[in-house]
Amino acid sequence: MTLVFDKLRKQYGQVVAIDDVTTSFAPGLIHGLIGPNGAGKSTLINMTAGSYSVSSGSIALDGKRLDTLKKYQIANSRVARTYQNIRLFDQMTVLENLEVCFYPADVGGTWKEVVWPPYASARREKRREKCMDILRFFDLQGYAETDAGSLPYGRQRMLEIARALVCEPRVLLLDEPAAGLNHHETAELTARLAAQRVPDRITIVVEHDMDLVMKLCDNIIVMHHGKLLFQGTPAEVQASPDVQLAYLGTANDIDEIRAAAQDRRAQLGIRARRRS
């Protein structure tokens, strides 16, 4: 059970945002997706979730194509996401924001809910129980009846993640979940996400906070200018000169980076040899 990108491309006019990305994500792990601004991380997330169309190539979950599906169908394949800019249902309560996620499962019983009150309350109870569980997990239970739009920023972030988790997704896509959070909140978030590492879930986290990424992720994918630059464990990524250059260097082209990295390796090698 994996999520597979095959020769994935995304182009906006002349801009190539994603350039021939082929990779796969194993279940049970938390994958970090990092790279400088404009690397194409959000574009990948948006394509996987169906918000953006795919220019060419394919996305498949368990061998089933996702890129040919409509956005709501992708969500119904249990792919859940958060947005780089929080998008909650502002004038609905915190509880309702979660409840509405059960729409695909429960909509068939709508008429029964309307005409048969006991059925309606049984359903609602069931939904609420699950919602309250996840709210407690995110320490939001006290806000259940508050409008989502009036929550403090950090809580809104948590609620959006809770909304993505409430239906127990198989693929969880988080676009900069720690953006705008303070140290304390980020630490809490890291702990909570770590606790949600369940065996059959693929979690992909886009994040600029390296501390969080290194602590949380089992596997890290580094992107640069729409291409995969490096993939490996946190330790490997930290040791990789390619990655350091991508973040710090001025080189623009991926080949330039590779070449520069080669040079650097050579230099390092020389130095190392001299030392020994």
Partner: peptide, 28 residues
């Protein structure tokens, strides 16, 4: 009662943010 049903919640979600509503699996 319709408003309080799951369909009613979906309507509200569409009112608030149609794209996000699709993103949670609502056939808008």
């Amino acid at each position: 009662r319709l408003e309080r049903s799951i369909l009613g919640k979906a309507w509200a979600a569409i009112r608030e943010d149609q794209d996000a509503a699709r993103g949670i699996g609502i056939n808008t």
